[in-house]
Design a protein around this nucleic acid. Sequence first.
DNA 1: AAAATTTTATACTAATTGGTATAAAAATAT
DNA 2: ATATTTTTATACCAATTAGTATAAAATTTT
Lengths: 209, 209
Amino acid sequence: MIEKLQSKKQNPNTRLEKRLRGRPKKFDFSLALEQALALFWAQGFEGTSISNLSSALNMNRPSIYASFGNKEHLFKRCTEKYLAEKLSFIDEAMNEKNTLMAFEALFKKEIELISHGKGCLLVNTALTCNPMNEAIKTMLTEHRKTLESKFRKRIQLAQLKKEVGTKESPATLAKYIASIYQGLSVQTATGATNRGMREVVKIALKIFE
Amino acid sequence: MIEKLQSKKQNPNTRLEKRLRGRPKKFDFSLALEQALALFWAQGFEGTSISNLSSALNMNRPSIYASFGNKEHLFKRCTEKYLAEKLSFIDEAMNEKNTLMAFEALFKKEIELISHGKGCLLVNTALTCNPMNEAIKTMLTEHRKTLESKFRKRIQLAQLKKEVGTKESPATLAKYIASIYQGLSVQTATGATNRGMREVVKIALKIFE
DNA sequence: AAAATTTTATACTAATTGGTATAAAAATAT
DNA sequence: ATATTTTTATACCAATTAGTATAAAATTTT
């Protein structure tokens, strides 16, 4: 009974945010963002309409605009969330103590991430688009470049420590790793199994043995 | 003067098709299809509207529908054209006399094909989409699987001829090759140069040396 | 209890989407 | 010349797009 009274009209935000004055939100901001991310991830930027989002988040349109801005802005927030929460393993993998372990960890975690068949958000959601949405495509492209440069830095470090040969440049090796990473993102959208992808990685990483 | 009279109201189809009864088409069917392919290739399936096509092909909408059917059907025709005209090099490459040469040829030609930065149509135009357009995504996926199976068959042949080791299965090696192929398609959309991609291929094909 | 505040829900906008009906235009066949 | 055929161009369709104005609802503050 006491419990029931306490949980009466419990707002998801109550515990986190200080209760504001007006009508309480019926949605949890962070959960809604996660649901938006899931939908964009599955359907791409242009494949997802505000109406789709409205249904999926159980929010009416004015609430979406009030909370997240327009479609482009919402997608950017989702991408940031994706980078912070889903791709955090990349920095962690790059901290492994040798190159082989670093990229083994990278791909192990990537395969877990993309095993649902939707691939990597940075790769699969807007490789091409209407000129109107060029900014979205460019943003994703920049993020992919950033990933590649993280690979490059890791390889540069390894070459300094003489841990890896210097025959190929770090830039080239990084591009090779990025190609595999992106290739797997397409592979999972082509029906590849986790096992199949792990075997691809095993071959791909032979160059570091 | 004579030339001018001869070329008066020259219809592009005149030479090929028997002149029909009614008002002549103002467009060349094959050219229009090529322009449609170029637009879908650059903007993706969902990023290309019938209005976009109408402008690009200089055809009004009823003419597009009359000539090519609806948007989905037109995209399928473009994909078929793409396979027949742009990806014909794949079968040719698979006919090279050894595995290394086959895949060297494959990637050399692929890089030429995608060097405009739009990647491979099968990869870059609808990796994700609205559920409404699922059939398009599925069609492209099937074509990607077909490519991979061509790689697999080539490797099976090579293993029979003891030309390549049997440590990894043809299926796995084919998936590895397909991953590189698809990875390069993303790479060119990420700003990679032809030279950069060629260097990636050089590393990738070391396993066949 | 009343005022203030904030979110919700409904209903709207103008533009665009994929797709088509209709009639004029431009050719050939008779 | 006239009829026939085919394409073009205009104008439309219903549905959906992204985005917003407005008022009711639900809360806290006074």
